[in-house]
Amino acid sequence: MTQSTSFLRAVQPAVRELKVTFFLLNRNLLQRISMVIILLLILIAIFAPVIAPYPGHAISDTNPKDKLLPPSSQYFFGTDELGRDLFSRILFGTRISLRTALLAVGLALLIGAPLGAIAGGLGGIADEIIMRLTDIFLSFPPLLLAIAISSFLGPSLENAILAIAISWWPWYTRIIRGQAVSIRERQFVRAARAIGTPLPKIIFSHILPNTLAPVIVQASMDIGGVILTIASLSFLGLGAQPPIPEWGLLISSSRTYFLNAWWYSTFPGIAIFITVMVFNLIGDGIREVLDPRTRKF
């Protein structure tokens, strides 16, 4: 058996679980709408350069003669202080928000998942140390640690991603550890131990793949929260830097003008709100589906 097929076989339970979840989610109207919107957002993110009427306005071009114009048929969402089309900038912003959120969550998973599997798989003193570490990280108010880290690393989108991942991983460690503890005692793990499989292999190719389903679900729910966190960091000046059309940064730069240019802060905010809300709605649905007490077959 090759390495890749054995991996596929290992993640099979995770895939099956995700399929069932998806099927159950699809039965609720609000969640169906949310899924359509998420799909739409992904399409916008991919095809932003094609859809945007002024793709050049996303980053570098300026157009001072049309500055701070209200929404019109030429500029759907109006223009900013440099005459850039806000509609185009917000479309490109979808790309940035989704990508950075995925990266941040992915990085947090990459740190958190192995640690959780080690804690749950080994038990004993390693477990104790790792779990106390998660306690300490989680005892910071949300966002605070990310603010501190990104201000010391220097403000940029990449550092914001890193800062969020560093403050977010303990959630995943906790979930995986909980799963791993119960899986450790299952027949197939005992069998693997009995035939002398080395411990690292047991942890990473027998226990870890079987813990992934719930944590992937949790991670997809977190995308909304992470998008909000990135926007907040950018708003404070600690995330994306101009001229990147990140939504939080757009709102931040609108502050000087918004009293006389309502469209400037309104539209980026609506974009954040809708995106975060649909991810939260899906997350709620997933939680209901996964909880055996509320699960309806």
């Binding site: 909304g224 926007a231 907040s232 708003f235 918004f258 954040i272 709100f273 809300m277 939260n280």
Partner: peptide, 22 residues
């Protein structure tokens, strides 16, 4: 309640200023 936790706080502040002050 799901809307309230999805709103960017800083944005709501600006919108309130826009509506109730401006």
């Amino acid at each position: 309640s799901i809307g309230a936790v999805s709103l960017p706080t800083f944005w709501i502040g600006l919108i309130l200023q826009l509506v109730f002050f401006r």
